[in-house]
Structure formats: C-alpha cells, structure tokens
C-alpha cells in the first residue's frame, strides 16, 4: 500500500515536471517572443534586443530552462508589465475569489447531481428518468456564456433583483455583505452544465447498481426505497464519482473562464481572459501552469479519496 502510494505520488510529480517543461516550451516557441508583447508589435528591433537581454531571453535554451525552474522553485512567477506587480501577489486575490465561486458551485452541483442521479437511476427507463435524461443533454449543450448573458438580461436588467456582475467591491476584493448577492448568478450559470454532466454520469452508475442483486435483496428484507437509495446504492455508485469530482477541477476552470468573463467576476478565469486580451505573458503563463498543477492535484486527491472510501481497493 505504501509502495503504491509512493508510485502514485511519483506519477503526479512527474506529470507536474512535464507540465512545467511543456509550458516553458509553449512560451519559448512563441513567435516574436514576450518582448513584442511588452513593447508592442511595432517596437524597434533594438528595443526588443535590449529587453530580451534584460530578461535573459538571449541566453541559450537550456540556460533559460534552468532559470525558469529556479524561479519557480522560489515562487517567482514573473512580473506583470500591464499590472505593474509581481504575478504571484497578483494571482492571490483572484485565486481566492475563484476558490469561493468554485466551492459554492461544487457543493451545489454535487448535491443536485447526487439527487438527480439517484432519481434517474432508481426510475430505470420510466418517464421521470427519461425527463431527467433529456434535461441533461439540454443542460450541457447550453453554453455558459449564453446562459449567463440571458440571466443578466432577465434578473439584473429587467427585474433588477440581482447585480449584473462584479463582486460589489474594489476590482478584486469584496465587501462580504454584498458578496453572496453577487455570487448567485455566476454560481447558477456555472452549476448548470456541471450538474447536467455529473448527474448523467452518476445516473448511469446508479442505474447499474439498481440492477444488482443486493438491491433486490435489500427490498426483500423490507428496506424502504429511501433507505435503499441513500444507505446502499449511493455508497456503491459514488465510488467512481470521486474520480469524476477530481476531474471536475479543469471543467470548473473552463466554465469559470467564460462565466467569470460574462459576470466580470474577478477570479482566475477573468484574469486569464484579461491577460490574454492585454497579452500579459507572465500572468498568462502562471495561470496556465497553476491550472495544470491544480488538475494534477485534483486527480491525485480523487485517487487518494477513492483509496480511503473503498475497502476493497487493489493496487496493481
């Protein structure tokens, strides 16, 4: 078990190392290079060369690559020329906002998906299950940016019940009093496709479980449908769900980029979007790297959680 855990951790570390390398070469292979994005496309070659020298971009590849690692090891993610701040400190607040939004969304989506999936699985092929199935296809075919825009149109512009965006404070910091108010629409938007996808996957798991003998056996010893669903089926059907929740991390960010942009919610996705529009390389690179590492960690966490939940787990 210890050996298997070390192997799993080793895999994760290797993935992170490859990721860091990959991102380095993505930046390195950029036509024009970072200097152009800082100085503008029409900068004079002399100015570009000077800046390249200043940033160490005239060194050989392997040297730049080592510097890249050294900087990362010290938590140095670069300096944002558009925001005039070190990227590491810049990302902090935005990351915090994203975590807040994602936590709300994750709780809502997992809770709803569990209920919907259980209902869908329990009803087998009967009408309620079919209706849930149809809703799921619609749910994850709806683009978040469309849903978000329509929600703003209805609830912010027409009805004026909720704010159209932002978080009610300075760009990246919020007043806690109005924060929840500002979270409702983005969270609803981001939850929709996630709930649809999760509940579909989970519903299939549940349906498979309901075909098992132990469900019939549980009914035969007088257990009610609620107890069977939550006490017996849920536990067995949820095992693959933990893996899926680990894989949810990237979809949260993907949905997050679009949702945060629609609502001007100052999170990591919004920052990614702004830095892409302003060609703020260091920030862009740091966010890509951060998202990659979070994904690897998410998968790792899901695996570990599975080991804890599953008494029958076997390592190969």
């Amino acid at each position: 078990m210890i050996a298997a855990l070390t192997k799993r951790l080793g895999d994760a570390l290797l993935s992170v190392a490859l990721l860091v390398t990959l991102v380095f070469f993505m930046v390195y292979a950029t036509p024009g290079g970072p200097a152009y994005s800082i100085l503008g496309v029409h900068a004079s070659p002399n100015a570009v060369a000077a800046l390249n020298r200043q940033m160490g971009l005239d060194h050989p590849v392997w040297q730049q690559y080592l510097t890249w690692w050294a900087h990362l090891a010290h938590g140095n993610l670069g300096y944002s020329y558009t925001e005039h701040a070190p990227v590491a400190s810049l990302i902090g607040t935005y990351f915090h906002n994203t975590l807040l939004l994602d936590a709300v969304v994750a709780v809502a989506a997992i809770g709803l998906a569990t209920l919907l999936g259980l209902a869908q699985g329990a009803y087998g092929r009967r009408l309620p299950a079919r209706l849930i199935g149809a809703w799921q296809i619609l749910g994850y075919s709806l683009p978040t940016f469309f849903v978000g825009t329509v929600l703003i149109l209805v609830f912010a512009a027409d009805l004026a019940w909720l704010p159209p965006g932002g978080i009610g404070g300075e760009t990246a910091t919020a007043h806690s009093a109005t924060l929840w108010h500002h979270l409702i629409l983005p969270a609803a938007t981001l939850s929709l496709p996630l709930t649809a996808g999760l509940s579909r996957f989970f519903g299939q798991q549940v349906r498979d479980e309901y075909r098992q003998d132990y469900v019939r056996a549980a009914a035969a010893r007088g257990l009610g449908p609620i107890r069977i669903a939550f006490g017996h089926v849920l536990r067995n059907a949820a095992r693959p769900l933990t893996t899926l929740i680990g894989m949810m991390v990237p979809s949260l960010f993907v949905g997050g980029v679009l949702t945060e942009s629609v609502f001007n919610y100052p999170g990591l996705g919004w920052l990614l979007w702004r830095s892409a529009l302003e060609q703020d390389y260091p920030t862009l690179t740091a966010i890509v790297l951060l998202i990659g590492i979070l994904t690897v960690l998410g998968n790792l966490a899901a695996d570990l959680l599975n080991t804890l939940l599953d008494v029958r787990v076997r390592y190969d």
Binding site: S15, T21, L22, V254, L272, I291, G292
Partner: peptide, 11 residues
C-alpha cells in the same frame, strides 16, 4: 497526461 492537465479552452 501533462497535456490533458491543461483544459483545452485554456490552451
């Protein structure tokens, strides 16, 4: 694996 860690839209 490393590539899959970065969501397509982010790339």
């Amino acid at each position: 694996d490393a590539l899959l860690a970065i969501p397509t839209l982010v790339l």
